[in-house]
């Protein structure tokens, strides 16, 4: 991508989502993320994440406050026994891509999850999404497994994981928390 046809990135603003801003931002978040999905999520999926973990969602706005990038995540105890962060959605407007915007958003999400004591952060991405794999792997994520036909459109995914604390791999399920977290992962992964 050449400098000339990509918009300048110096006047961009990054900010944390807040539920009080739902009316202002939710429609554009849906539009931005829905654009690259073959199967759009229902509004409940967005609210599921944003209403509970708005502080783990970050947005990039252009100088005229138009949303050009967003990351949506959550953090909760997982049935494996870890306190697990999960990046559910990430998107940057086409013409702003390749300038490190997504990288910055992911960094902000990781920092926020670290701050909140996450053991690990996981996500899934399609095996042929080169941009996504590159940006996560450059930051330190490893592929942990391949998921055959993971998406509804039949595409295969990698699960990527970043450990934040030693001993994460040795954690074990705590009985009473079994189930729930896993179910939601399957639903929205």
């Amino acid at each position: 991508m050449t400098e000339s046809n990509s918009p300048a990135t110096d006047n961009l603003r990054y900010l944390q989502y807040d539920i009080s801003k739902e009316e202002e931002y939710l429609p554009s978040i849906r539009a931005l993320i829905g654009k690259d999905l073959s199967e759009p999520y229902s509004i409940y999926v967005y609210r599921y994440f944003l209403n509970q973990w708005g502080d783990l969602c970050f947005m990039t706005l252009d100088p005229s406050s138009v949303l050009i990038g967003v990351i949506v995540s959550k953090l909760e105890p997982h049935r494996s026994g870890t306190f697990r962060g999960y990046i559910a959605m990430l998107a940057v407007v086409d013409k702003y891509r390749g300038q490190g915007i997504a990288t910055k958003l992911v960094r902000m999400a990781i920092d926020a999850m670290k701050e909140r004591n996450a053991d690990e952060i996981v996500l899934e991405t399609e095996t042929d999404n080169a941009a996504s794999l590159k940006l996560y792997e450059r930051l330190g994520f490893l592929r942990s497994k391949k998921l055959h036909r993971y998406y509804l459109n039949g595409n295969t995914a990698y699960r990527l994981i970043l450990y934040l604390k030693p001993g994460t791999g040795l954690k074990r399920p705590e009985r009473d928390e079994a189930g729930m977290a896993a179910v939601t992962d399957e639903m929205y992964g």
Binding site: R107, I110, E137, R138, L139, G140, F141, L142, S144, I161, L162, Y163, L164, K165, P166, G167, T168, G169, L170
Partner: peptide
């Protein structure tokens, strides 16, 4: 070689070896 600013090699080793740790 990736720079991986957010990860330490010991943690990556733990993740890689997870199925065999015990």
């Amino acid at each position: 070689i990736l720079s991986r600013p957010y990860s330490e090699s010991s943690l990556r080793y733990e993740l890689r070896m997870k199925p065999f740790l015990r």
